Every structure is written in C-alpha cells, then in structure tokens.
Simulated assay, not measured.
Amino acid sequence: PTPDPSPQGGGELSTGVLLAFAFPDRVAKNRGNGSFTLANGRGAAIEQTSGLARAPYLAVGELTGTAAQGRILLAAPITLSEIELHFGDQITDADEVSFDRSAMTLRARRRRALHAITLSEAPLALAPSEGTARVLADGLIAAGLDRLPWSKQLQQWRGRVMFLRKAEGEPWPDLSDAALADSREDWLVPALFDKTGLKDFSASDLSDALMNLLPWELRVRLEREAPTHFEAPTGSKLPIDYEAEQGPTIAVRLQELFGLTAHPSVAGGAVPLVLELLSPAHRPVQVTRDLPGFWRGSYAGVRTDLRGRYPRHPWPEDPASAPPTRRAKPKGT
C-alpha cells in the first residue's frame, strides 16, 4: 500500500507504520516472554528487558539468526488499529474447524489474520457437514481407534471377519487398525456427517458403519463359517473367542462334551476350535484341538484326578458314548 501522510485527517505516520510499509512481512505479534511471530511465519525474540518486549505488535526493521528463531535488533511498536487501517487489503477472515483431542470434539472459530499472525478470533456455532465429518474422522483416527465406542459384540464381529480373512484371504476385508485408518473415507466419514464429537457417536453408529464394509453375501457366509457361539451337546451356547492367540477358542466344562465324537470346527471344517476344558468348578483342566484323541488318551488320567475332587459328578470310563451333562448326580447316588 501507498503511505497516506494524513490517514485520519492530518496525523503523522508512526515509526511502526513506516517500518511496516518497508517490511510488511515483518509485522509481528507478541506471544509472551519477548517472543514474537512474524507475518511471514518466522519466529523472533527480543530482549525481555526491552520496553518493546511488552508491545502487543511490532514492526521489525532488522533481525538476525535462523528462520526458526531470529533475534530482533531494530523494531517499533505498531497498534492493531494501524494494522487494520494500512494493511486491510492483506487481512483475511476465515472460518476454521479443528479437532480438540482433550474433549474429543470439534471446535469452530472465525479467525482474522494478517498472513501468519492472528489478529483476533471468536468461537462459532458449528454446523455439521461433510467437511466437518472429515475433520472429525481425522481427529478420531489420530486419537486411536480404541477410543471409539466398541461393544463386545462388535469386537467379536471384527475378530470373526479377521479370522476368515486370515484363513481364506480375499474377499474378506482387512479390518486391522491400519487398514481402517486408511479407509476412513469409506466407513467413518459418512457416519459422522451429523456429528460434532465422539459423544454423538454411539456404539450402534460404529457397528452400522463397520458392518456396511461387509457385502451381504459375505454376511451370510460369516454366520455359517464363523458363528458367534458353539452349541455344546447339552444345549449350552458358548461364545467363541476369535481373537485368542492360539486361534478360535471356547471354554467349556468337560462333562458338557460327553458323547461328542467329532472335534468341533469353524471355517467350513478347516479350522478346529481350541477347547479349553474346565472342571465342574470352571477351573482349567486341559487344552486340546483333538477331542477324540483326548477321550482315548489323557482323559483317563484326568478322570482319576477329578473323580476324587468331584465325586458327585459322573466320570464315565467311555466319555465318547456317555450322555453330556451340566449337573451333579443326585445325593445318595
């Protein structure tokens, strides 16, 4: 801009304004402790003992040092009203949306700025949109997928899909943390169009968003090849842990499997379930991937041990042909 010697009807231009006309990229804002941010984005400092160290704004005439942190050698104060008056054509107003990780929510503000320095800002009411959904999704992913409202049911569903992906490969989707972060445009952003924070995103919302990644034909196969539960011969429905280190696992009281002659499996019979066999008191007894082999082999030693500790429970010599049970024998028998 061209200097106006009488901008308001006859006033002289201040030294700060003259310096700013000469070096408009060096208008600087105080950020405390003698430290300033320049309009060009550089950082610079002045001796804290200098009277200029407390000025809200400076026009810097001379500085030395690195681009990251310079030392101010010559400067003069300039007021916000002078900046507004003489550099109004370089001042921008922008509405900005950012993610507040401490509150796990979006914040909106109107920022008035001279290039890299903020002259003023004020909070704004936030209107959810596709744009805000992207900012929120990026913030939530950066905070960590574990911060999302996972239900036990959804965690198991994810484990089931990942199990089948490991067993069969494509077309099962990759639901690892890294893959979900990379594909957030497909599942997370659309689910956040009407949200402004994690508090608005329910476990049901998360479940719907993720389950949409699985085509209908795979949903049918998922129920068939990776069921949520194993039904024991007694009728007990036992949840299958697909995230167990040793593979899909169930914990079941040994006596509930009496009469079972084939080892239970998933993935269309390709993967045997890991059976954590329990005593009547639900204490671990044995882990096996071969139930018929267990009946023929180490069951005899387990039977000898458990008969003494649980005499009111049946311990048949031939468990493969005995009826399964969840109960102890009646007293007196």
Score class of each variant (00 low, 15 high):
residue 245 E to G: 02
residue 93 D to L: 15
residue 299 Y to T: 01
residue 248 P to K: 06
residue 7 P to Q: 11
residue 196 T to I: 09
residue 137 A to P: 01
residue 174 D to V: 06
residue 288 T to P: 02
residue 211 M to D: 02
residue 41 G to F: 15
residue 298 S to L: 06
residue 45 A to E: 08
residue 133 A to D: 04
residue 239 P to K: 05
residue 152 K to E: 12
residue 177 D to Y: 08
residue 84 E to P: 00
residue 57 Y to K: 00
residue 51 G to L: 09
residue 277 L to F: 13
residue 136 L to N: 01
residue 87 F to S: 01
residue 289 R to M: 06
residue 102 S to N: 09
residue 127 A to S: 10
residue 10 G to E: 07
residue 5 P to L: 12
residue 67 A to Q: 14
residue 7 P to V: 10
residue 67 A to I: 12
residue 305 D to Y: 15
residue 217 E to R: 14
residue 285 V to A: 14
residue 116 A to R: 12
residue 257 L to N: 02
residue 282 H to V: 04
residue 220 V to E: 14
residue 233 P to M: 04
residue 309 R to G: 13
residue 56 P to A: 04
residue 27 V to K: 00
residue 91 I to F: 15
residue 98 S to E: 10
residue 240 I to K: 00
residue 236 S to W: 05
residue 205 D to K: 08
residue 140 L to T: 01
residue 53 A to T: 06
residue 22 A to F: 05
residue 202 S to A: 06
residue 16 G to C: 05
residue 40 N to M: 07
residue 178 A to I: 06
residue 132 T to S: 15
residue 8 Q to N: 14
residue 270 A to S: 12
residue 278 L to A: 06
residue 125 A to H: 06
residue 71 R to H: 08
residue 218 L to M: 11
residue 325 T to Q: 01
residue 146 D to G: 11
residue 318 D to L: 15
residue 313 H to G: 00
residue 292 P to N: 08
residue 29 K to F: 00
residue 68 A to W: 13
residue 167 A to R: 10
residue 112 R to K: 15
residue 274 V to C: 13
residue 114 L to Q: 03
residue 64 T to G: 07
residue 85 L to Q: 13
residue 74 L to A: 13
residue 268 G to V: 09
residue 83 I to S: 00
residue 308 G to L: 15
residue 7 P to Y: 11
residue 260 L to M: 13
residue 67 A to D: 15
residue 75 A to K: 02
residue 91 I to V: 11
residue 53 A to I: 08
residue 73 L to N: 12
residue 145 L to T: 03
residue 187 W to M: 05
residue 265 S to V: 02
residue 194 D to M: 09
residue 229 H to A: 09
residue 193 F to L: 08
residue 131 G to A: 13
residue 202 S to H: 05
